[in-house]
Design a protein around this nucleic acid. Structure first.
Length: 347
DNA sequence: GATCCGTGGTG
DNA sequence: TCACCAAGGAT
């Protein structure tokens, strides 16, 4: 027997954890050197923000939220208006509504639950996020499968079955390679690998620590995961209304849980609830066409024409006169921030 | 399972 | 450039 044959056979998790110990990204929600474990509040907050959102986009929002609300108890005491305004621009606004509800629930529980099943009951926490928090914040063994893990695993095992049907097989393979110890580090290592090395386009196989295990390595890694073709986006048209009086503008809050629900916005003609806007005007008098803005959502594109009111009448119904000098603090979603810029002729 | 839900970066 | 996509969840 040689010395090398006594060594344990290299495993995916062993090799990947060694790589992670050398190459882990320094991210503000991870445990810092000297800290024994990551703060569950920061892990949870980051995981919600990172849903379908890039690390670069999340960083300034994470910094702002943890500065204003350093603990989950502080966040639980915040007003929905303040939370929604702080979330403005990050997208998927149901996350912000659920965030506040979950913070209150955690406060009622006296702290974060530690098991996947209990975490899963918090609004906005699904299968992935529950597994991630249990593993990263509480050291539990959990099978963490996000889009990065789907990509890495589908390449490791050259899974030809297209998504979403392949999810069952992907999860089984992910389970098989997840270690009993350091499951949280393993999950973060898979995500670091997926975002930096095993990328969607132009994967860096020459830098990949798992190349020796990878079945797609000798094929075309970019083929995996196999995905069905996606549908074309329809174009909708709508109008937004700019009503300015004495240095203020009339803003409303959007209803319910639908498109941009709960967010402050310009009044509009209902384009989000119909295929196109109604064409009705909210106020009698003269309207001036200030031009259009174009915005792409997840499942449709919108051409929004901005109409500026020229008269002196005041609108009726719910709303508020917002100082133009503080418009940046109104928390307008990007679409309406664009529309406001157009109305004010600032490029 | 299919659809809805934002935004900004990128090759 | 522009189609594609990113640490998904709710219904």
């Amino acid at each position: 027997m040689t010395a090398s044959s006594n060594a344990a056979k290299p495993t995916v998790s062993g090799v990947l954890l060694d790589w992670y110990d050398r190459h882990a990204r320094d991210l503000p929600w991870r445990a810092q050197p000297g800290e024994p474990a990551a703060d569950p509040y920061r892990v949870w907050l980051s995981e919600i923000m990172l849903q379908q959102t890039t690390v670069a986009a999340v960083k300034p929002y994470f910094a702002r939220f943890t500065e204003v609300w350093p603990t989950v108890e502080a966040l639980a005491e915040a007003s929905e208006e303040d939370v929604m305004a702080a979330w403005a621009g990050l997208g998927y606004y149901s996350r912000a509504r659920n965030l506040l509800m979950a913070a209150k629930a955690v406060g009622d529980l006296g702290g974060f639950p530690e098991t996947e099943a209990e975490l899963r009951r918090l609004p906005g926490v699904g299968e992935y996020t529950a597994a991630a928090i249990a593993a990263i914040a509480f050291g539990r063994r959990a099978v963490v499968v996000d889009a990065n893990v789907e990509r890495v695993v589908s390449r490791l095992f050259a899974i030809e079955e297209p998504l979403p049907k392949a999810r069952r097989a992907i999860r089984a393979h992910a389970d098989a390679i997840t270690p009993d110890r350091r499951a949280g580090d393993f999950a973060q290592a898979m995500m670091d690998l997926g975002s930096q090395v095993c990328t969607t386009r132009a994967p860096q196989c020459l830098l990949c620590p798992l190349a020796r295990f990878c079945e797609a390595r000798t094929q075309e890694p970019e083929r995996f995961p196999v995905k069905p073709p996606r549908k074309a986006k329809p174009l909708r048209k709508g109008r937004a209304f700019w009503i300015e009086r004495e240095g203020t503008v009339w803003l409303v809050r959007r209803e319910g849980s639908g498109m941009l629900g709960g967010m402050r916005s310009l009044p509009d003609d209902g384009w989000s609830a119909r295929s196109d806007g109604s064409g009705e005007l909210p106020l009698a008098g003269e309207w001036e066409n200030a031009g259009s803005v174009f915005h792409v959502f997840t499942h449709f594109a919108l051409e929004l024409t901005v109409l500026r009111h020229g008269g002196a009448e005041h609108p009726t119904g719910e709303g508020e006169w917002w100082p133009l000098d503080d418009l940046g603090k109104a928390g307008l979603p990007t679409l309406f921030a664009k529309a406001a810029r157009r109305a004010r002729q600032i490029t």
